[in-house]
Every structure is written in structure tokens, then in C-alpha cells.
Nucleic acid binder design. Sequence first.
DNA 1: TTGAAAGTTGAACCATTATTCAACTTAGAA
DNA 2: TTCTAAGTTGAATAATGGTTCAACTTTCAA
Lengths: 207, 207
Amino acid sequence: MATEYSEHIESKDKQPRTARGLKTKRKLLDAAALEFGEKGFHEASITGITQRAGTALGSFYTYFDSKDELFSALVKDMSARVKTHAAGAMTEWQDALEREKQALEAFMTFAREHKEIYRIIDEAEFVDPASYRSHYEETAMRIYERLQEGTATGDFRGGLEEAHAWAIMGMNVFLGMRYGIWSEEKSPGQIAELANGILAKGIAKKG
Amino acid sequence: MATEYSEHIESKDKQPRTARGLKTKRKLLDAAALEFGEKGFHEASITGITQRAGTALGSFYTYFDSKDELFSALVKDMSARVKTHAAGAMTEWQDALEREKQALEAFMTFAREHKEIYRIIDEAEFVDPASYRSHYEETAMRIYERLQEGTATGDFRGGLEEAHAWAIMGMNVFLGMRYGIWSEEKSPGQIAELANGILAKGIAKKG
DNA sequence: TTGAAAGTTGAACCATTATTCAACTTAGAA
DNA sequence: TTCTAAGTTGAATAATGGTTCAACTTTCAA
């Protein structure tokens, strides 16, 4: 859980200047991820965050300008984390279809291990709409690029548009919510396999 | 916009007993849908709602116990409206695949005309999680039933599970958000057509 | 016509919390 | 060791906005 919440999180003049400060800030960030993930933005309180972090209320403002600013920073950081993790996971594939399967399986596994992340990104729709939008637009773009590559290598058919990427993303997100966050009755592998079946041949008879 | 926000909205002892009361309650409901849709649950205020409705602040509490209760009622009502509308739209089809296309097209059209509805349902994830969950579980169930019917009539292949319904729903929801709410650069028909291509034959070469 | 029930009104109340700040402690460079 | 910048603390501040309520008006059945 404790991790390098990096660059984009600093707000110009509030960077810690000593090791002690750095440590405190990190404690606050980790605590905030938990608090927001558990209670949601509005139910979460600065008091709750500082309590979890084991610091005084006032220390929060040594490192952050406001509750919103912190949330926003957190969203951007989590979006980046999802991206990084996904990128690292799609290795060892010979077929573009196979790669999509791995992407979904990795996503589902990550979602299970970091349920707070998804809660926070989802709530960004209301608290920080711009970041929410960016998150999904960028994710869709990445998928779209893979689709084009797939077409180029002959694994995918032609005529695939950006909207296809949105469709695939929606599929993945909802499967992640239902079988990653809400319950774990099916394994990431099973779900990925099944979704891949749709991409491979659809659901119509014949084909 | 003004509509029959029906049964499930009454909270035991707060039903209006006269025509005047009924009218006031309806004004409040309509105003609330607008206010919540525009500002989101937390930014929305009772004052804002009563102002829009053209009633006094106190009147709100003649018909509702709390802000939360109202929101909850609204979510359930909108969920029902989406359901009803969708049901009415899937007529005139010969093929189960065709029916899914119509379902998505109708959904997208409805989303464009009632953007507030989707904002409210989405926010229910945080304000009224139980209703949010029910909404999607019920929607998924309805899709799943159609899948089974499709298999029975031979239009769809076998082996379709509930998870397939969730995948389709996710696809639809994200396409609705991107091409229904965020922008209208493509028509509902185009999007429905394209998504239907995925269901029909997937995105792989050959097949 | 009339009186009790239903509905309306908005000022006042109150609880919650984000944010500020001045006093205090610690770190670490010189 | 010493002195200043950095960091810590938590009580006080301030603003917001949901909820209550007692006085007032309208409805409508008898």
C-alpha cells in the first residue's frame, strides 16, 4: 500500500524539505487513499485522514492546500498507477487477441487488490470531472492503439474505430466492478477468457 | 420533464392529501431531478431545489424526510423509467441480435434526452449504493434473459452466462456516456451498429 | 358557511468540518 | 553547540446548509 506517490502530487511550495517531512506526507497520502476509498470523498474527513496517518490535524495543511487538491492529486496518481501496472502486465503474447485477454486479467487482478483505487476514480466523475475524463480518454486511446496494431498484424479485422475501444473498455470496467470488486465468485482468468470469447467470435450462432 | 414520479416515492406518512399538495410535490420532484443532475448530490441544496420549484424551504419537509430520502426515491424512479423506456423500445425485430441493436440505440437516444438521469444513477454509487447495485443487477438480469432467449431461438450460440450480460451492459453504458452524454459526434444508430458488429462476429480477423 | 385538516412560509437553530494560526518542537547545517 | 528553517500541534474560526417549528393561509367536507 505504501508507495511512491510521485511528482504530480506536489503543489508548488508545499514540498517537504526534510526526510521527516517526506515521511509525514507519505503517511498522509496513504491514509487519504484508505479514507477516501472507504468512505468516499464527502464522508471522508481531514480529521479522519490525519488520525489514520497518526499526525495532527494541522499537519495536513503543511503539505496540501485543500481537501479537493489532495483528492485530485490522488486521482491522477491512481490513474497513473493503473496505467503502469497494465503496461507491465501485457507481456508474453503472440496474438493481439491474447494480449487483450491478458490486459483484462491483469486489470481484474489489480482491481481486487486495490479496490479503493476504483472507488476513487469513479468518484472523480463528481469531484474532479476533468481527471475522470482524462483517465478514460487516455485508457481508451491505449486500447485503440492496440486495436490498430492488431489490425496491422492481421490478428484483428479492419474497420475498428475509437468507439470499439470504448466498448471494450466498458466491458472490462463493468466486469471488473462485478467480478473484481463486488464479488470474487469467478477468477480473473475465467472472466478474461469469457470476455475474450466475445472479442474472438461474438455471441451469434454460426461464425 | 414533468412526469409521474410514481408510487415508490411516497414515504409512509407524507403523501399529499389534496390536489394542491400533489402539485407541489411534483414540482419539488422535478426541480430535484434538475438540481441533482446539474450539480450532483452534495453541491445540490434544498434551498436550490425549493427555489427552482418556487416553493418555500419548509415545504420540502412536508413531503420528504431528508435530502437522502429524496435522492434515493429519485434513483429508484429513474431506474424504473429507464427500464420502462427500454422495454417499450425493443419492438419489431426478427433476430435476437437485431433486438440488442435496438436496445442500445434506444438507450443512447434516451441518454441524450435525459442526461440528468445518468448523472443521478451514477452518483448513487456513493449516495445510495444499494439502489445503484440493484439498478445494474436488474438490468443485467434482463439482458441475460434475452441472451437465453436468443440461444433458445438459435440466434445466439450456447454457453452464454450472466457475465456475458455484464459485459454487454458495460459496453452499452460506456458507449452511452461517451457518445450520448459527452458528445454527440456519432448518432445512436451508428454506435448501435458498430457495437452490434462486436456481438455478431467479434473483432478478430476471419471468423 | 365554517371549522378542522392540509399546506405554506422563512427565520432560527444546530451540527458538521474545512481551514487558520500562533505557540511549540525537531532537524541539521555551520 | 547553536541557531534558523522546517515541521508539528490542536484549539479556535468560519462558513455552509440540512432540519425544525410556530405562525399563517388555503382547501374542502359537512
